[in-house]
């Protein structure tokens, strides 16, 4: 992967993101992936003068993750999207849509976690 990757933990993720902001970095977005054994991997992508930096956080899906939407307001949408797709809670989310940003109550399964298998429809 292009760019520098820094590993962070639940305790220092907000502080590291704050450092990035003070350094003048622009938050591009987050990416999420299934890190196995009920864990979610989140990559925070930053950009400054076309140079990429990524913070990697691997956390349990059932514990709340500190929100960085207080540091970067633009993290609000992507954190709500992750809430929709993975059913992960964020602590201190500025505007919490409570899993209704993209999904409606009819969708009871969690799309990107393992309990939904898609296949042909009739």
């Amino acid at each position: 992967m292009k760019g520098k990757v820094i590993d962070v933990t639940l305790d220092n993720v907000v502080g590291e993101v704050m450092n990035m902001k003070n350094d003048g970095q622009r938050l591009v977005s987050f990416s999420t992936y299934n890190a196995g054994e009920g864990k979610i991997g989140i990559l925070y992508h930053f950009d400054k003068a076309l140079e990429n930096t990524h913070l990697r956080l691997v956390a349990d899906m059932d514990k709340p993750i500190p929100s960085v939407s207080g540091v970067y307001f633009s993290a609000l949408l992507v954190e709500n999207e992750i809430r929709d797709q993975w059913d992960v809670k964020f602590d201190g989310l500025v505007l919490d849509f409570n899993r209704t940003l993209l999904l409606d109550p009819e969708v009871t399964k969690v799309p990107l976690a393992n309990n939904l298998k898609i296949g042909p429809k009739n």
């Binding site: 591009v28 977005s29 990416s31 992936y33 299934n34 992508h45 633009s74 609000l76 949408l77």
Partner: peptide, 27 residues
């Protein structure tokens, strides 16, 4: 932005797409 995770099979592990309008909604 595209983020792709391969796992050695013909299917990808994860495809993540961040499109420009997604970034432009907070502004």
């Amino acid at each position: 932005m595209y983020y792709i995770r391969g796992n050695g099979t013909k299917n990808l592990d994860r495809l993540r797409i961040r499109t420009p309008t997604f970034a432009n909604i907070p502004p």
